[in-house]
Design a protein around this nucleic acid. Structure first.
Lengths: 224, 224
DNA sequence: GCATTCATTTGCGTATGCATTAAATAATGC
DNA sequence: GCATTATTTAATGCATACGCAAATGAATGC
């Protein structure tokens, strides 16, 4: 993801490490952690921890609560609904722009590859890899939309979806329809049919939202 | 805007002050400023300045460039196009949700008031106040959409629009059509006609985008 | 002159120190 | 006992200190 030869600053490392700890549940949703505690844990001073926390706060992953430490934000079903609604609009915008952009099949290679991977993962029932490729597909779609702001908001929101998915992935039925949708979207974009691309994708996302909300409602914790 | 009795922290003050300085052009777009320089200017230490800068960076107002100081980000026509596209989607989402929400006329009071103010301001050709009310209208619309994430992204992007508008406001023709659009949108929402609300507002925003891009292209600086 | 190397400056990234103040605990009055 | 106030504790917010590395400028070689 970042093959830059530059060696990253302590603050950047803190951001990465904290993100990972949050995603793998090492820092549980809803839990509180003192800055100083995190500092010793990551073997650095409070300063980079604080700066990283500020960054992550603006990304909606945690919250700084004076004297209570940083709180890892849980994602409730209501939050998920908001997130999916925003994602739907941004991805549909991307789908429309991508369809209008007259991309060649070659330009859409990454999109096609993601579909292939998903189909293969689906065949061997490798959900982890399916999810990874699905993610890649959506990210590539938004990238093709050529709107850097939409992209960065997408990434922020998508982070939260990934978090929720880590809990719901194995509760859901096999995503056969999902793969079908992706293929149709790909075709619509390749053909330059913007209206259809948006139509397909809006449905696709709306279904995903309902699926997610349904699964979350069945989940004992009901927030992640 | 914030009548809270709490007295705000130095960092928060720094955020507010820097924002104001940026909006009033006191810190010009494209200019660089050393952290230490800003610190003496705001009469505080570098720490809150840095923290504020980090926050503003995540809001897209400036950029921290090691050894070159914080750079106030200019907004180019390309940026504006991206921003308007995102705003269009988020506001249309809000319009749809607002229409679906079965709001009473009473709930829509603030929206109506904003329209009245805009019409009055238009009559007496008070563009400053027209812009202020227009802003309020859009913000209220998104608020009615009841999606806090959409709202905060909206606010971020809208900040940039305000910045650009401060330069283009007096170049544009009187916004008569704009007011007409607002009234129609209000009616569609009040009647619960989501499809029409979206339709109207998408057009409205698309027109605004083109107007803005057109004005910017005529502007000597061509970025703000 | 021009390029290259070396010395110097300086801004930032990080660490550390400290005052403030919210929270927690103990103490007091009823 | 219970409520209220005083006292202590401790985490933060901010200031300050400092080393490093980038940028600048001087000095040297060609």
């Amino acid at each position: 993801m970042q093959p830059s030869g530059k060696q990253l600053s302590t603050t950047q490392r803190a951001v990465h490490l904290l993100r990972e700890m949050i995603f793998r549940g090492d820092l549980a949703a809803g839990s509180d952690h003192l800055e100083s505690e995190l500092a010793v844990r990551l073997e650095m001073s409070r300063t980079p921890i604080r700066e990283a926390a500020l960054t992550l706060e603006s990304q909606g992953l945690l919250e700084l609560r004076p004297r209570k430490g940083v709180r890892i934000l849980p994602v409730s079903p209501d939050d998920m609904e908001e997130i999916y609604d925003v994602l739907t609009e941004l991805e549909c915008l991307a789908a429309r722009r991508a369809a209008e952009a007259n991309y060649s099949r070659h330009d859409l290679k990454a999109l096609a590859a993601a579909i292939e991977n998903m189909e293969h993962a689906l065949e061997i029932k490798d959900l982890e890899n399916w999810a990874k490729s699905d993610d890649l597909f959506h990210r590539e779609l938004v990238r093709l939309g050529q709107n850097s702001r939409a992209f960065s908001v997408f990434e922020m929101m998508n982070d939260q979806v990934r978090r929720a998915r880590s809990v719901t992935l194995f509760m859901r039925p096999l995503p056969v329809q999902s793969n079908e949708d992706h293929r149709q979207l790909y075709e619509a974009i390749a053909k330059g049919d913007a209206t259809r691309a948006v139509e397909i994708h809006r449905d696709h996302r709306q279904n995903a939202k309902h699926m997610m909300l349904d699964l979350l409602s069945k989940h004992r914790l009901n927030s992640v």
